[in-house]
Design a binder for these strands. Structure first.
Lengths: 233, 233
DNA sequence: CGGCATCCGGGAAGATACTG
DNA sequence: CAGTATCTTCCCGGATGCCG
């Protein structure tokens, strides 16, 4: 019994798709399934392997990750690529169109931080942290800042560059960073979004700083969270 | 047996929530369920009744709509309001925070129209159409335009105003419109996004125009769709 | 290890019918 | 008009096992 597991091609009408001309509705047909947008998030700063994505998406199961990768590939949002030897294996990489969803995720995330239920002290993946800096950075505060900061977060390293008022995040290590943070993403988030003093995090061993400490002190003030929406009731 | 139908309060950990500090993930906890974002879309231009929303969201079932409205109310995104007599009954209305999701939906919709699978000739609700104008309007094209256009779409009427390069959409009829379209939302979309000439739609009886026809001719050119993403494979 | 196939239990979504 | 009640379908999540 062949069971026809072709999980929805574009032309098969499904009760689970909206089939609406509205762009927003179509977006949900593309990325509205559970985990889909978070899978894209993890690829936003460069290609990743299956198992690395699984590690950074706590709670996702292997078969769901497989299904989402298939769906996003079919939609043209990402591609699967064979790595050349010796690092062989395959990675998943967003297409140019897939990368263009970055500002959408930024806008969505900024909106959601106004939720009374948003708690910045929970789990955070390294990619989420770096993207949050790009999403939450205030031009008025970063204006004139010219600096390079390195983040060593577990097995991943990222570089954040401030230049001309813009914020750029990249995977990998810059050559001559002004400042290096070593620790976990939630620890950095505690400093930036939770208001926990850097000294406390250092004393706890949760975070290590090397380099320009004045820059670190300024850095943690650059990403103010918007005011919470008040619950009417 | 009381059956405990408390469908997820904020503190009960659920396998179905991401429980992540990432703003994007939290957004999905708030509005990631099926239909949630489209329910918000229908309220974006003002409050609505239960049955009107049901009519404009083809395919949603009454119980799912009930659940979404409950969830969005609990999240603080909308409120339920009693209408004063004689128009009694109740309506649902976005909170100030809920209305702030408008640019998010615009960005999402704009991104999704680049999908090869997006088909602007499908069903479209009146609200979707009006929001699409705000989302897709090009400042370079609308610059200097000062005009008021009325849309009579079934039982709903909307006013679109161009002024100072901005586009404003409101429910209800303006006093002295320069142009009036009467028909259905998909018919207007066919003219604006499908490239169907206005004369053809008029000849078919799908659309009626009254007023400044030169304005109509310009109007249909103001919202170019972005180029499709090419499928790599 | 990396990825896919399969089976299972629970629960969300969909369809229909019904009620105040 | 504004929802419940009920039943069915099928997606999600977990576990296991296969294969290169």
């Amino acid at each position: 019994m062949v069971l026809q597991n072709l999980t929805q091609t574009e032309n098969v009408p499904s009760r689970r798709r909206y089939e609406d001309a509205c762009g927003t509705a179509h977006a949900l047909d593309l990325i509205g399934e559970r985990w889909a947008l978070l899978v894209m998030r993890e690829l936003m700063l460069g290609p990743k392997r299956f198992s690395d994505m699984r590690a950074d998406l706590p709670g996702i199961s292997a078969n769901v990750l497989t299904q989402r990768l298939e769906g996003l590939e079919r939609a043209g949002i990402l591609v699967r690529r064979q790595l050349p030897p010796p690092a062989s294996g395959q990675v998943y990489e967003l297409t140019e169109w897939g990368y263009q969803a970055k500002p959408v995720m930024g806008a969505l995330g900024r909106w959601a931080t106004r939720s009374p239920g948003h708690d910045p002290s929970r789990h955070l993946s390294p990619v989420s942290l770096m993207l949050s800096f790009q999403a939450m950075g205030q031009p008025a505060l970063t204006k004139g800042l010219d600096a390079t900061i390195l983040f060593r977060l577990g097995r991943e390293t990222y570089t954040l560059r401030f230049a001309d008022g813009a914020i750029d995040a990249q995977r990998g290590a810059a050559e001559h960073p002004d400042l290096v943070f070593t620790g976990t993403a939630p620890a950095v988030a505690a400093a930036v979004y939770g208001g926990v003093p850097l000294e406390v995090l250092e004393a706890e061993g949760a975070l290590k700083l090397e380099g320009d400490r004045a820059l670190a002190a300024r850095f943690v003030t650059l990403f103010p969270l918007p005011p919470k929406a008040s619950l009417p009731g």
